[in-house]
Simulated scan of single mutants.
Amino acid sequence: MLRFKHLFVTIVGLALCVLSAQAQPRDSKRFAAIENEKIAYITKELNLTTAEAQRFFPIYNQYSKAVWNVRSQRQDDSTPSPKGTNSFNRSSGQRDVLSYDAKELNIKKEYRAKFAEVIGQSRASQFFEVEQNFRELLYKELQNRKRNE
């Protein structure tokens, strides 16, 4: 029980330090709460020890920021085109969806190797599945809240 308390306090403290150090416009109270839930979920699902969590989450935060940047670029480049034109054939600033997917895949490959140094190859690969499962749980929760409103 004492070990669990220590693990929980360490992870929450680490999460709060990281979130406060990376004050960005996207950091709202809801975002911080979701990110804390995500950190707890990842810790539980990957069965991270305290030492592993302390080494893993700074790398995870770098990964998260890199992926966020690629997704933001994709969003910025997806401005609606004038009616009757194809957004993929615009003469200025063609949007190549596959290039964004390739960038994101390269980031995942790079960080899987970094994660493996801390938590081993198996759990590093499992991380991406755990992250997807969390997104699905979050989406289901959002859908349930919308139905109940």
Rank of each mutant, 00 (worst) to 15 (best):
Y63T: 09
F115Q: 10
F8W: 08
Q121T: 15
D27M: 12
Q62W: 00
G93Q: 04
G13I: 01
R147C: 09
E129T: 15
D101Y: 09
P82R: 03
S81P: 03
F57A: 02
V130W: 04
E45K: 11
N36H: 10
N36C: 14
D96C: 02
L138P: 05
M1H: 13
K83C: 04
Q62H: 08
F127A: 06
K103C: 03
A124D: 10
F31T: 10
N89H: 08
G120A: 09
E37F: 05
T10A: 13
L48N: 08
S72D: 09
T50K: 11
D27H: 14
L7Y: 07
R147G: 15
R145S: 11
S91F: 07
Q132Y: 09
T43A: 12
Y63Q: 08
S99K: 09
K140H: 13
Q24F: 07
L105R: 15
E110F: 07
F134Y: 13
G120L: 10
S28Y: 05
L142H: 08
M1W: 09
I11K: 07
D96T: 02
S20M: 12
F127N: 02
Y63A: 07
T10D: 14
A102Q: 14
Y60D: 01
P58S: 06
Q73A: 06
Q121H: 13
S72G: 01
H6G: 13
V18N: 03
S78L: 15
Q62F: 00
Q75I: 02
R95H: 12
S87K: 05
M1N: 12
L14S: 07
G93W: 00
V97E: 06
E129Y: 14
A53I: 03
F57N: 03
G84A: 10
K44G: 02
R3V: 14
V18S: 04
S72Q: 09
F57K: 05
A15K: 00
L105F: 11
F115V: 09
S87D: 03
A51I: 04
Q22I: 02
R95N: 08
S64K: 10
N61A: 08
D96K: 01
A53Y: 02
V97N: 04
R95Q: 06
K108Q: 15
G13F: 01
R135D: 13
E37H: 03
P80C: 07
Y111I: 07
N47V: 12
A113D: 15
V18R: 00
L138M: 10
L48H: 10
Q126S: 11
F127M: 05
L16Y: 14
L142W: 10
L98D: 15
A102F: 11
Q73E: 10
L137I: 03
Q24P: 06
T49F: 07
T79D: 00
R3Y: 15
L142E: 06
E104D: 06
R55W: 00
A21L: 05
G84P: 07
D27S: 12
N69S: 09
F128H: 07
F8I: 13
F128S: 05
W68D: 01
D101A: 06
L48Y: 11
G84L: 04
V12A: 12
I42C: 03
R147Q: 15
S81T: 05
T85F: 04
F127I: 01
E37N: 15
P80T: 06
N47I: 09
V12H: 08
Q143F: 08
A40D: 04
L46M: 02
A53D: 02
F4V: 12
S99N: 13
V12T: 11
E131P: 04
A124R: 08
I11E: 06
Y41C: 03
